[in-house]
């Protein structure tokens, strides 16, 4: 898919893209001639199709591209997927299980339920329908989380941010989440 600025007859250039959230992504394009910008917003099916093809608008980071079976492990439903596929022996498992900074938080959240991690008053909590923004720094840190727990980590952090009455995830929010969950 390409975009053309009809006024300038120039191909639009990608200037910013958000990583796909649960069901949507956005990408901002700009005309190199006149500077006109517009945002592409995908619906859940379009977003999922991109995930299914294992491609990303905006390109993949080297780390994301190199991770083995990333699409499979990040797309399997948490209910049916093995929690941490790793080596059969303890030694192998210890050697290969990623030291994920959010795995404990996710496990704790699953064990105690999201409600336990929501101390803010109900009136201050943004509804789940309000999309959570991620700063570039926070997004880069999320990229470092192993793919097969990334979606769960993202959900957990967003849930934590909402519980604090926030609508944006920053590096400070991620630090607070880690502290909150004893990581």
């Amino acid at each position: 898919m390409k975009f053309l600025c009809v006024e300038c007859d120039e191909g639009m250039k990608l200037v910013q893209s958000d990583r796909p959230s649960e069901d949507a992504l956005s990408a901002v394009f700009e005309c190199p001639g006149c500077g006109w910008r517009f945002a592409l917003l995908t619906n859940p099916w379009e977003t999922q199709l991109l995930k299914s093809l294992d491609v990303r608008v905006g390109g993949k980071s080297d780390a994301a591209a190199a991770e083995p079976m990333a699409a499979l492990r990040s797309s399997l439903s948490a209910a049916g997927a093995s929690p941490a596929p790793s080596g059969g022996s303890d030694a192998a498992a210890g050697a290969t299980r990623p030291s994920c900074p959010f795995a404990g938080m996710v496990a704790q959240q699953q064990a105690h339920g999201a409600a336990a991690a929501s101390p803010a008053t109900p009136a201050a909590i943004p509804p789940a329908s309000v999309p959570m923004r991620w700063t570039e720094e926070a997004m880069l840190r999320l990229e470092r989380v192993p793919a097969f727990v990334r979606n769960m980590a993202r959900s957990g952090i967003e849930e934590f941010a909402r519980s604090q009455g926030l609508t944006e995830v920053t590096g400070e929010v991620m630090d607070a989440a880690r502290q909150k969950f004893g990581m």
């Binding site: 191909g11 250039k13 990408a27 491609v55 990303r56 390109g59 993949k60």
Partner: peptide, 12 residues
């Protein structure tokens, strides 16, 4: 139009 604006889906 050369490329796809920057995502390089074909390259991926």
């Amino acid at each position: 139009i050369a490329g796809d604006g920057g995502s390089d889906i074909a390259g991926q």
